[in-house]
Amino acid sequence: MGLVYEPVDLEREAFEDLRGFIEKLLSKPAPGSAGRTGAWRLYRPAVDAGRCIKCGICWLYCPDDVISWAPKGLPIIDYSYCKGCGICSSVCPVKAIDMVLEGE
């Protein structure tokens, strides 16, 4: 038929596209996939180190896994992501976590 096709550097274009669409299609695990969710917080959990019995129950129930805890250690809360739900405070068996209004 004598049709002349436009010469295209298929290989190169395809390589760039492959990289491009894989980047758009896939996401990689990383904290902050909804941004700094600490900004959602109205009340801040404050751990009373004197009262805390280091049981880890606050760690267990924290939905956002923002509490670092090692056996026999104090819980450390990552306030940049803590949404302030208050679950840690409500499950604490010795009431060692207070919810404090942000800004106070």
Binding site: G32, A34, T37, W40, Y61, P63, D64, D78, C85, I87
Partner: peptide
Amino acid sequence: VLPGNPACSGCPHNI
């Protein structure tokens, strides 16, 4: 679960 995902505050699924 990784901190700072879009789940609502107090979300049971995250647990």
